[in-house]
Amino acid sequence: MASYGTTTQRPATSSPSPTISRDDESEESARKYLNSFQFTCPFNIPSTPESAAVRIIKNLAKFSLYYAIFVWTVLFITLIPERKVSLILLVAMTEVTVLYFLLLRALPNSVVLHKIIDKRVVLFLLFMITSVELILTRAFIHLFATLSATIPIVILHAVLSKREQVSVYEEARGAGELVPLVEERVSDAEPVNLV
């Protein structure tokens, strides 16, 4: 009972393990990283005209907002030096469009806004009103020059951009899940792309 509360240490019977230098660890981790690194190009040329047409339709649906912002930005820049009234009307119609989208987001259960009135029809009408305003303010040359310069770029991007990585995201979006924007490995041999 005299040794109550004291601890005794036993001597170690194993030999000390060899130490790995930090340089070896960093080289090994860099080698593992380089072996797991895969570069994928988001662009390629479609094999057939049918696949090009399908790719155009899918990419126009996927990137429509970005394409519209691209065309709007180029039109905005071309109107800055000479057409101040046209620029003000373009900004006003942009604000009307933004308010429409805010109304759609604020009332997600509205039958009138989501079922009866199709947003594509509303956006087409807003585009037509903007075009008429630009034509009436004699900025139609800027409008047609902008459209003739940006539409080929949009079509070229829609043809060359491949969508293979988006299929998992679309399936998960339909199920109401959020997909992380990273790539997880199931095993060392097979990477699973989650985007």
Rank of each mutant, 00 (worst) to 15 (best):
E25V: 07
Y169L: 03
I77K: 06
I151M: 11
A149T: 07
V91C: 05
I117D: 08
A52T: 06
T78V: 11
K119I: 03
I45K: 14
T40D: 09
R163Q: 03
V85T: 10
P108V: 12
E177T: 03
L143S: 05
L181Y: 13
E183V: 15
V166D: 08
T130M: 07
H157R: 09
S29N: 07
V91S: 08
V74W: 03
V91K: 08
F124A: 15
Y66V: 05
P11L: 02
I117R: 10
D188P: 05
L99N: 04
P16Q: 15
L194N: 12
V195W: 12
A145I: 02
L113W: 08
T19H: 06
L160H: 05
A53G: 14
L89I: 06
V192L: 14
F37P: 01
A145V: 13
S51K: 15
I153H: 04
E177Y: 15
R173F: 10
N35C: 00
L143V: 11
Y169Q: 11
S17W: 04
S64R: 07
L89C: 03
L113N: 05
R22E: 06
M128C: 14
P49I: 06
S64M: 06
H142L: 04
S131I: 01
A92E: 15
R83A: 15
F39E: 07
L34F: 13
A12Q: 08
S161R: 10
K84C: 10
N193C: 09
L156N: 07
V91T: 12
M128I: 12
F43M: 14
E183P: 00
S161C: 02
I141S: 12
S110A: 05
F70D: 00
Y66H: 10
L125M: 13
M128P: 02
F76A: 01
K62T: 09
L99H: 00
N109E: 12
T19C: 02
A12K: 03
V111H: 08
L156F: 10
A68R: 01
T146S: 11
W72Y: 14
P16N: 15
A12L: 02
S26W: 07
L160T: 12
R163I: 00
L104H: 04
V91I: 11
L125E: 09
